[in-house]
């Protein structure tokens, strides 16, 4: 049993989960929704084993390090954190339908990693040989994942609000009617960001602490650093928008989507289009 086989099974599980969630949207059958969640959780369990196995495999090869060191590994971990945050929300609040908008993000990540990225286990370059790698990457990606979930919820919110506003003129849409009310979606969006924002803050701080330990500068306006700060600014604006009249609801949802778009740019765009210290995106 190799980790790469398990990662393929994981990808497949997320694919099935997404299809089942879409079927849930169409059928509104609760059993189907439960099946969607259970498939996602099964995929998550397999992926957890796969990540640990890959960690062990790296030690067997004499290149031992946590599987968080290159683009392939980070995309896989990102998918894992997205399902983790979704699972917590699902178990706590039981709004299954969110899965249809969140699991696709995880599937997209896994599919890209398995099909398009180099999955070889590379030895760690000197710059990454530090325990800070673990703290920095884990906190950042948990934050990113919470923002991914918030983005999925915000998209649902905007769809739901449109339907609620036009209610009366057109019959209630079948699928959209299964969404939680816009008030609940707005609250869930806020809750997801309330989880993501402290994690991103810790992620930026651990990154700064590491940079200071490795180079003697905690902040050097490197594009990656700057973009993480841009993401932080956007969500800080979101948090303040929530308590300002005229900025609640739609504008907050749009800010949440803009926030996730900047998150994705910070994570991938910076490596693909700009140059800097976080060079793992150069080609994996």
């Amino acid at each position: 049993m190799s980790s790469s086989l398990l990662f393929n099974i994981t990808t497949f599980a997320y694919l099935i989960s997404m299809v089942v969630f879409f079927a849930f949207l169409a059928s509104k059958n609760k059993a189907v929704g439960l099946a969607g969640s259970l498939t996602a959780f099964a995929g998550f369990a397999i992926q957890t084993v796969a990540i640990l196995l890959r960690w062990k495999e790296s030690y067997d090869m004499g290149r031992g390090h946590a599987p968080l060191s290159n683009l392939y590994e980070s995309v896989v971990f990102f998918a894992w954190t997205i399902v983790l945050i979704f699972g917590i929300l699902d178990i706590k609040y039981k709004y299954r339908v969110i899965g249809a908008f969140v699991v696709p993000f995880a599937l997209l990540g896994m599919a890209w990693a398995q099909l398009g990225l180099d999955s070889g286990i590379q030895p760690l370059v000197p710059a990454l040989q530090s325990n800070w790698l673990l703290y920095h990457v884990i906190t950042c990606f948990l934050g990113y994942a919470a923002f991914a979930v918030a983005c999925g919820i915000s998209i649902m919110y905007l769809i739901k609000v449109r339907q609620e506003e036009s209610e009366g003129t057109s019959p209630a849409g079948g699928i959209i009617a299964t969404f939680p009310s816009s008030k609940i979606l707005d609250d869930l969006n806020y809750k997801a960001i309330m989880v993501g924002f402290p994690l991103l803050t810790i992620g930026i701080i651990t990154g700064a602490a590491w940079a200071n330990y490795a180079w003697g500068t905690y902040w050097s306006w490197d594009p990656k650093e700057t973009w993480s700060l841009i993401v932080w600014f956007v969500y800080a604006a979101f948090l303040h928008a929530r308590i300002t009249r005229g900025w609640v609801g739609k504008k907050a949802a749009v800010l949440s989507i803009v926030g996730f778009a900047s998150t994705i740019f910070c994570y991938l765009g910076v490596n693909l289009f700009l140059s800097g210290l976080h060079s793992y995106g150069g080609g994996g």
Binding site: I230, F233, V234, A236, A237, H240, A241, T244, W247, S262
Partner: peptide, 8 residues
């Protein structure tokens, strides 16, 4: 909010 977005 304006300043945070302007900085971003």
């Amino acid at each position: 909010i304006f300043l945070l977005i302007a900085l971003a």
